[in-house]
Design a protein around this nucleic acid. Structure first.
Lengths: 216, 216, 216, 216
DNA sequence: TATGAATGAGCATTCATTCAT
DNA sequence: CATGAATGAATGCTCATTCAT
């Protein structure tokens, strides 16, 4: 299965061959961030449309209106783009979840949880791609240890919140289990919203459930 | 569970026994269902081990002890096997969820929900592959119609149950939303179990949550 | 240069896409050795024509009248074919050089050296590719230590012969240096022959030189 | 050496020179000959280090401290640089071989040949790259005309010398064959020296051999 | 003149699928 | 029915070369 690479010169073959065919198309120079964003955006859209596994680098660059080689100016590999997308989405997620302030008194917890749910759902709606990026290809990550650092930090935030609530006696749940289950509950609600379910209903139901689950 | 070898295995074994025989081609005939099952089992095991995308048809037939070409005698394509596996797993799921009887009186609902949660989690533990098969590559399907028919029917069962509970006044939830969210809650709990979390804690917490969510 | 492969599913993408285009061309089944030889022969010819670095796997299979994929049924990689070719050529070389018997008395040395030269040149003529395979890409080998095992064994044979001659007093030369220089002398003579020089002249001159160099 | 990719800056060289300045673009103007020499030197060093086929234009310009595009201001193509390097090396070679004066009387020939050998070996030691440049990729050239023009002129010098020697009766050899064989003998000796063989031994042996071969 | 982002042809390799045996 | 050699489309990636700045 391997593929013995021994430094010989296989690829440079092209170099030894002859020149070009016809000229090129257009050529536009842009700020690195623009290009990176272009590619990230194109990739995200395609991943949502066709599933990560079905999107090739060529698909991405075509959609972004760039040449294939340009991709590798901004990402080391297809997987690097994937990772970057995860990180990007994660950044938004952490931000979305992180804005919450811990309630001062037990009476404030319901409102806090409502805020949490609303924020989370808003985030999930605005980042439908997150669903795919986080849900699919779980195996890609379990390999290099670290078990999904992205979701971890998201969970981490939730965990802190819940732990604090339990500590203050306002919440009642298992600190080891509840964060994950609540997270997935919200994730699923986000899916529902993305699939066109009635936002009012879904949000209300999600808020009701989370409070039912966590409030002591 | 995995590669059920029945001692009469074709090629490899023969080759070892008779390293000389020129073309060395063994042929074993089996009931179609046996072959199909062999392939399904091998595929399931491999998908769990390496992730769906990393398993080739050759991997599957090798593990099943069959020739590559034989695969196409039993499945139209690689995707057909995938679909078949989904259906198979789905069968078990529906069965697992379907065994529940509707409670006669409101007092019986807590016990019923406990049974539901326990059954669901047992199912998820025994069918870890389901996680991957259902969670990953969802878009592969949304394209060719049906929007996740598998999960749908699983949800269907849950939905009936919940609808009945609401109808009888024993449960209080949104019929359109709750089944999905509860399903994903259970799904996530199954994941936790598969990842080695304390089964007692997880199950207890899941039961507590589901009841908190659904009981009126 | 890297190429981070982490088991994710990049290549299987095709699998998730749709089926085929038009049917195929011809399809002929042959004994493995036939195919291997076909490829080796085609590769050898092309390497001579265009230089190793300028020959692609596609070039080879096209010349061999096979499909690109077929190449990988017989060789693990492009480099594996290269190695196989080296080994093959080497086999012939060792055989060609190995047939020599050590002369019994000092008087037999001139005849022995004549035989050596004739044999070596015949070999070089019949294996023009050897020139390229042995001469080019020296760096490919200096990496995995062992410093060109092929040539080594060829030299080894020459070395034994020369060492024996010196030991018996029939030859006079430096055992560490002479084998290499004589080898390259013969190699160069082979080149000349391959390039169309007058075989009689070249052979005679080579015989004269080797004897002048080695006989004490 | 590899190519440190961090996915964010396509502009590596500039970034290293001017990590702050926003567009960070340095520009230095030099005499054309300086630039050419810079590139030639960098290329030569890299070719020796990694082998011709493994050195990209980017490698060369990076090593030379120039931008990739600048390369094409001084060389029409990668192959043109190769050719230029060959010519350059050749110049040195011809010079090294050309300094020899034809001996006046037959008695001077041994000394002349010794000088020749010493000069040639010194040249080969000082220009190890020549080995690679001359030995590898010979076919790249036989295609586009000229049959190794470099070596030809080197041979030419040797040929004149030998022809003169034969004409004067001091040497005895085939004018068509001997130059090539002697050249390769020296070439091989140079290789040996480059590989660390005992210089005294090698040089002595080479002188002995050349005289044994040529002196009548 | 110098720069380096952009280009796209080309390459090695994989793998689902077919079909002669 | 079973087999596995053969196929070729598709993919990730490299790199010589061009050109807007």
């Amino acid at each position: 299965m391997a593929g013995v690479r021994d430094g010989t010169t296989p690829n440079t073959a092209a170099a030894l061959r002859d020149p070009q065919g016809p000229p090129g198309r257009t050529r536009t120079i842009r700020a690195p961030e623009t290009r990176r964003a272009q590619l990230l955006t194109a990739a995200g859209a395609l991943f949502i449309e066709k599933g990560i596994g079905s999107v090739s680098v060529a698909d991405i660059t075509t959609r972004a209106g760039l040449a294939k080689g340009t991709f590798y100016l901004y990402f080391e590999s297809r997987n690097a783009l994937l990772e970057a997308l995860r990180v990007e989405v994660m950044g938004k997620a952490v931000e979305a979840f992180g804005r919450l302030e811990l309630p001062a008194s037990a009476d404030d917890w319901p409102a806090c949880l409502d805020t949490l749910v609303n924020g989370a759902l808003d985030f999930f709606i605005e980042n439908r791609d997150l669903h795919d990026l986080l849900s699919s290809e779980p195996h890609a990550h379990s390999t290099d240890r670290g078990e999904w650092p992205l979701v971890m930090s998201l969970h981490g935030r939730l965990q802190e919140l819940i732990a604090a609530g339990i500590g203050s006696g306002a919440l009642a749940a298992d600190v080891a289990v509840a964060p994950t289950l609540v997270f997935e509950l919200l994730h699923a609600a986000g899916h529902l919203l993305g699939d066109g379910a009635d936002p009012v209903k879904v949000k209300a139901e999600a808020r009701r459930m989370v409070k039912a689950i966590l409030l002591s």
